[in-house]
């Protein structure tokens, strides 16, 4: 019986793992291989140039800028998402009946289901300086158009707002459902001790949800790496290079501006190493 079951496990798991390994490792090895060459989009002949692409990266100011923008993006979107999601979830749990909560949950799920491209356009219209709905009040009051996406100081924050719009509302739904699964006794005990509402959440509810909240933060950190769609549609990395993240820069190096595939690939390999190492360490830490 036991042997038969192990046989099933092996036949169910092995082929899938092999397929996944091929699909994941072939491109990875290829990426490393290309990054050591001087291949360009136009020509097919290429020579191995060792690590020179990587060395070049560190004196490329645009690359360093992109790394900094990516880091800012990661910090801003992850913290904004988690803070807004937790606050909204607590408000939903405190102020709404279960039926209203469920109805609002459906509304809050909508933004995250939209394709990122759609979300980007929807907000690009809303932020349009002349015809936008979101910028209209400012225009009506001051008579000046408000162009948030072409202002170097506000462009990244504006795109990050769209990201938080999709993810914070989604996470608020998950967190409110998590709050609903908590046993009521600790809440009642805290109320008997005259704890204020915020104290109940800060010292009782949130600590009880520590594990799932950390997992959610982790998921958001991974998903924040996928900023490309929003930025590509909303700003194309502009104005200047103020919203140019690493994937945007790699894309424009490889495909738009110069077709330097090997150089773009070396950037991608570097990103891959950093994210894999960082997330593996984080994950192992969180899980133990």
């Amino acid at each position: 019986m036991r042997a038969k079951n192990n046989y099933l496990a092996a036949t169910f798991i092995t082929p899938t793992m092999l397929v996944l390994a091929v699909l994941a490792f072939v491109p990875t090895i290829y990426a490393i291989n290309i990054s050591l060459q001087d291949r360009e989009l136009s020509g097919s002949d290429a020579n191995y140039v060792g690590l020179s692409n990587f060395i070049q990266l560190f004196s490329d100011r645009r690359f360093l800028n992109a790394a900094f923008v990516s880091l800012k993006w990661e910090l801003v979107t992850v913290s904004a998402t988690m803070i807004i999601a937790v606050l909204l979830a607590i408000m939903m749990f405190e102020a709404l009946s279960p039926r209203l909560r469920n109805a609002l949950s459906l509304v809050f799920l909508m933004p995250v289901l939209l394709p990122r491209v759609s979300a980007a356009y929807v907000w690009k219209f809303a932020f349009h300086p002349l015809f936008g709905l979101a910028t209209y009040p400012y225009k009506a009051l001051t008579g000046q158009p408000l162009d948030l996406l072409s202002n170097p100081n506000t462009a990244l924050a504006t795109v990050a707002l769209v990201d938080a719009w999709q993810w914070a509302l989604f996470f608020a739904v998950i967190i409110v459902k998590l709050l609903e699964t908590l046993p009521p006794q600790p809440f009642e005990a805290a109320k008997l001790d005259h704890a204020r509402t915020w104290e109940i959440y800060a010292y009782v509810a949130i600590p009880m949800l520590k594990a799932p909240l950390i997992s959610l933060t982790f998921v958001k950190m991974i998903e924040s790496l996928r900023a490309f769609d929003l930025i590509y549609v909303m700003t194309r990395g502009g104005p200047g290079i103020t919203t140019e993240t690493l994937d945007m820069y790699a894309f424009s190096q490889g495909f738009i501006e110069s077709g330097k595939i090997s150089y773009a690939s070396s950037m991608a390999v570097l990103m891959m190493i950093v994210t894999t190492v960082a997330f593996t360490i984080l994950w192992k830490r969180v899980r133990t």
């Binding site: 990875t28 990426a31 991974i222 996928r226 994937d247 595939i261 773009a264 994210t275 894999t276």
Partner: peptide, 9 residues
């Protein structure tokens, strides 16, 4: 964890 650019190129 793999960045999509890293796979796409």
């Amino acid at each position: 964890f793999l960045p999509p650019v890293a796979v796409a190129i």
